[in-house]
Amino acid sequence: MTEHKRKVGDRGQVTIPKDLRDRRGIEGGDEVEFVEVNDEIIIKPPRDEERLAEGYRKRAERSRELAEEMEDASAEATGHLGDAPDWSE
């Protein structure tokens, strides 16, 4: 757990440390959620539907890329080793 200390301004404003913003994908203009749990205040990064959808799109694209790489590797192996024997006999 990383701890950061910040001063609260006269208007109640606090700057979220840059390394935390970067790791959590928080950008200027984003809305964050404040949740009070027991004696702690938790700041939650935005989790809007578009961000989730973008994450899923990136994951799907990476899966397609990996599938293409595996097809190429399989074709190369077949070229060097020949087709797999028929084991159904």
Rank of each mutant, 00 (worst) to 15 (best):
E3G: 08
V8P: 01
P17W: 01
E65A: 09
G82T: 05
E33C: 04
A77D: 02
R62I: 04
S63L: 13
K5Y: 12
A73C: 03
E54I: 10
A67P: 00
G82N: 06
D30A: 10
W87T: 10
D10W: 01
G55F: 01
R62N: 12
Y56N: 05
R64P: 01
V35P: 06
I42G: 07
R47A: 13
T15Y: 02
R21E: 11
P45D: 11
S88E: 08
V37E: 13
V32G: 07
D30R: 04
R57Q: 11
I43Q: 05
P46Y: 07
V37I: 15
G9Y: 00
G82V: 03
H80K: 15
I16N: 02
P85A: 02
E69C: 04
E31S: 11
N38Y: 03
M1R: 07
I41F: 03
E65V: 07
E50D: 09
G82I: 01
G25V: 11
E31D: 14
D30F: 04
G55Q: 07
M1E: 09
W87N: 06
A53T: 10
E68F: 08
P17Y: 05
D39T: 11
R51G: 14
L52R: 12
I26K: 03
L52C: 02
G55R: 07
E27V: 07
K7M: 09
T2E: 07
D39W: 13
N38R: 14
R59S: 11
S63N: 08
I41C: 10
K7S: 12
R59E: 08
R59N: 09
R6F: 04
R57I: 06
F34M: 15
I26E: 09
N38C: 12
K18T: 04
S74C: 08
P45F: 11
G12D: 08
D83L: 07
E61D: 06
D30V: 05
K5F: 11
G12L: 05
E33R: 15
R6H: 05
E33T: 14
D72T: 06
R6M: 10
H80I: 03
L20I: 11
T15L: 15
V8Q: 05
S63V: 06
Q13D: 08
V35N: 05
Q13M: 09
I41Y: 02
K7V: 11
A84I: 04
Q13Y: 02
F34V: 14
H80S: 08
D22G: 02
K5Q: 10
